[in-house]
């Protein structure tokens, strides 16, 4: 796939906002891959956690927002615990989720949830799910 990278994209308003909301300097990541190696949700992801950071570093925010990876991050903090550069990746994922929902609306439609399962879930599953998947 051909990707055009421009200074404008790398310094775009979107990148600035993601850094502000997450409180992270995305350029701190040097792609050792430790986050992706230990991510327990990686097998469900279309892009690995460090590939998401790479996209943001290159100003490819749209592609990061289209990735399903941000929705499969369980905010388990394993990557953050192990990152040699102290990058708080769960915060970056949260910023991307928020941005994606601001652009496209909520990720979770209550009406489409499995009604049988609904009756079974503990309360905290809902509250956490709605916090992560709706604005």
């Amino acid at each position: 796939m051909r990707v055009t990278i421009s200074v404008e994209q790398v310094r775009s308003e979107w990148v600035r906002r993601i850094e502000e909301v997450s409180g992270q300097d995305v350029m701190a990541c040097y792609h050792c891959g430790k986050c992706s190696a230990g991510c327990p949700a990686a097998e469900a992801m279309d892009l690995l956690p460090n590939q998401i950071i790479r996209l943001v570093q290159l100003g490819q925010v749209e592609r990061a927002l289209e990735s399903q990876t941000i929705w499969y991050c369980a905010a388990c903090q394993t990557c953050y615990a192990r990152c040699p550069k102290g990058v708080d990746l769960p915060r970056l994922m949260e910023a991307l989720r928020e941005l994606a929902m601001q652009k496209r609306g909520d990720h979770l439609e209550i009406a489409r949830l499995d009604v049988q399962a609904l009756a079974e879930f503990p309360q905290q599953a809902f509250i956490a799910g709605f916090r992560k998947y709706t604005t």
Binding site: A74, L108, F121
Partner: peptide
């Protein structure tokens, strides 16, 4: 100490 899938279960049980 690995995550069990947490709230992913609400929308994506196939992942959790």
């Amino acid at each position: 100490g690995e995550c069990c899938g947490a709230y992913l279960t609400v929308k994506s049980p196939e992942a959790s």
